[in-house]
Computed example of a mutant assay.
Amino acid sequence: MITALIADDHPLFRRGLRALLGTMGEVEVVGEATNGAEAVTLAASLRPQLILLDLHMPGGDGLTAIRRLTALPQPPHILVVTMVSDDDSVFAALRAGARGYVLKDADEPDLIRAVLAVAHGEALFSPGVAARIMTFFSARPATDPFPGLTASERNVLQLMSRGLSNEAIAGSLGLSAKTVRNYVSNVFAKLHVASRAEAIARARDAGL
Rank of each mutant, 00 (worst) to 15 (best):
L157I: 03
G163E: 05
T143H: 12
P145F: 15
A151S: 07
G148D: 05
M160R: 09
E153D: 12
R162S: 07
L157F: 06
T135A: 15
T150H: 04
V156R: 00
G163A: 06
S161K: 02
L159R: 11
S152Y: 11
P145L: 10
T143R: 13
M160D: 07
S152L: 12
F146K: 01
Q158S: 06
F146G: 01
L149F: 04
M160P: 01
V156H: 00
F136C: 08
Q158N: 02
T143P: 00
T135W: 03
I133L: 14
F146C: 07
V156S: 00
T143W: 11
R162E: 06
T135M: 14
F136A: 12
P147E: 11
T150D: 12
Q158D: 04
F146N: 02
P145N: 10
F137G: 10
G148W: 00
R154K: 06
N155L: 00
P141L: 11
D144S: 12
I133A: 06
E153N: 07
T143L: 13
N155Y: 01
R162F: 01
D144M: 13
G163H: 04
L159Y: 15
R140E: 15
F136Q: 04
T150K: 04
V156Q: 00
G148Q: 03
M134Y: 14
M134P: 07
S138E: 05
Q158H: 03
P145W: 13
S138W: 04
R162K: 12
P147N: 07
R140L: 14
S138L: 05
L149Q: 07
V156L: 01
S152R: 01
T143G: 05
A151L: 03
F136V: 06
L159W: 14
M160Q: 12
S161D: 03
R140N: 09
E153R: 05
F146T: 02
L149D: 11
V156G: 00
P147W: 03
E153K: 03
A142S: 15
I133N: 04
S152A: 09
R140S: 15
P147V: 07
D144F: 15
G163Q: 02
P145Q: 13
F146V: 04
R162A: 08
I133H: 09
R154L: 08
M134F: 14
T150P: 01
P145E: 11
I133P: 03
P147Y: 02
T143D: 13
G163W: 02
A151E: 13
L159S: 09
G148E: 10
P147K: 04
F137R: 08
T135E: 09
S161Y: 07
V156W: 00
